[in-house]
């Protein structure tokens, strides 16, 4: 399989794996709170693709796609959600703080903005040790409202540290849209005000994402400077509540955490016929029949893996 197909295969694996977790969730088998990241697979696979041994990755509580990408397996993650000793962290972490230090995930945070300073400190440790590595810290459009985001892009730039602040903007903070809670934040202007490089990613094209992220990583390491990458994502699994007098068509509920009741486990794991769904975007690059065949193969393999 060529590298293009391998990337597609990873995105499909992450999607079906999450759909399996969703089924376990719907069956009320999980005690821990999982924040599914259906729709985040393209950026997760792209970030995973550019990581090397000494790099650090610090995702948020919505870390499932990144953990699946880095672990390469579903079983240890699912076992962690079941809090089994065979889990990725032997049942010590659960979902929101799931780690995989051997595969670069050294810290995860369920507190908005908490992870930014830890990333800057990790980058400093790398600088002192003479490493040529990058630290990638994730946040959402909610986390950039926290003071720690501002504090840490400021600190990273002041200390000249190779940190990529990767902001997954899904337009929602829990069940509140951006326009329901705050004014618009133009991250490009905020970054520009501190002379920090800013890149916008949109469209879930993993091949373009990988090329861009490789370039940004090279820049941050060579120039010893932070960068800010804002990527638009749609957290799929949304639904409408039953009709009410206030909302005759049913109130729209964005997916935040817990099961996604309207997402079903399918051999062909497409959720949405739009660029918001990375699976749909793959069909622009690879013949759908090839993708469907791979999805069927992986579906069977994953069922076998967790049996």
């Amino acid at each position: 399989m060529n590298s293009k197909n391998k990337i597609a295969e990873e995105i499909i694996r992450l999607r079906i794996s999450q759909m399996i977790v969703n089924e376990e969730y719907k069956a009320k088998k999980l005690k821990v709170s999982v924040h599914l990241a259906l729709g985040h697979e393209a950026i997760a696979v792209s970030v995973s693709e550019i990581l090397e041994k000494d790099d650090n990755l610090l995702p948020t509580h919505r870390n499932i796609a990144y953990n699946l990408a880095r672990a390469g397996k579903l079983r240890p993650i699912l076992d962690e959600y079941f809090l089994k000793p065979t889990g990725l962290n032997a049942g010590h972490s659960g979902s929101m703080n799931l780690l995989n230090p051997e595969r670069n995930i050294v810290f995860t945070s369920s507190i908005l903005g908490n992870q930014f300073p830890v990333a800057v400190g990790l980058a400093m440790a790398g600088k002192v040790a003479g490493k040529k590595n990058v630290t990638i810290v994730m946040g959402g459009d909610g986390a950039i409202e926290e003071g720690s985001f501002y504090e840490n892009i400021l600190m990273a730039q002041s200390m000249k540290l190779p940190v990529i602040f990767l902001i997954e903007n899904n337009e929602w903070s829990m069940s509140t849209r951006i326009d329901q809670r705050r004014c618009h934040i133009d991250l490009s202007l905020l970054a520009k005000s501190m002379n920090i490089r800013y890149i916008h990613l949109e469209g879930n094209d993993p091949y373009r994402y990988i090329d861009t992220l490789k370039d940004i990583k090279k820049f941050t390491i060579e120039d010893r400077a932070p960068a800010c990458v804002e990527v638009r994502v749609a957290t799929l699994g949304e639904r409408r509540l039953p009709s009410s007098p206030e909302f005759p068509e049913g109130e729209f509920i964005n997916y935040h955490s817990g099961p996604a009741p309207e997402v079903a486990l399918n051999e062909w794991p497409l959720i949405k016929q739009s660029d918001e769904d990375p699976i749909f975007v793959l069909t622009k690059h690879i013949d759908q029949s090839v993708l469907e065949e791979d999805a069927r193969r992986q579906f069977t393999a994953l069922q076998k893996e967790i049996a």
Partner: peptide, 28 residues
């Protein structure tokens, strides 16, 4: 091999920064 850094006024982040250095195997 070490550094002295006169920092910004960002106490919350300065605490997290120290934990980051510690996590990276350094001394803060």
């Amino acid at each position: 091999t070490g550094m002295i850094i006169n920092t910004t006024n960002t106490e919350n982040s300065l605490v997290g920064f120290g934990f980051g250095v510690m996590l990276g195997g350094g001394k803060a």
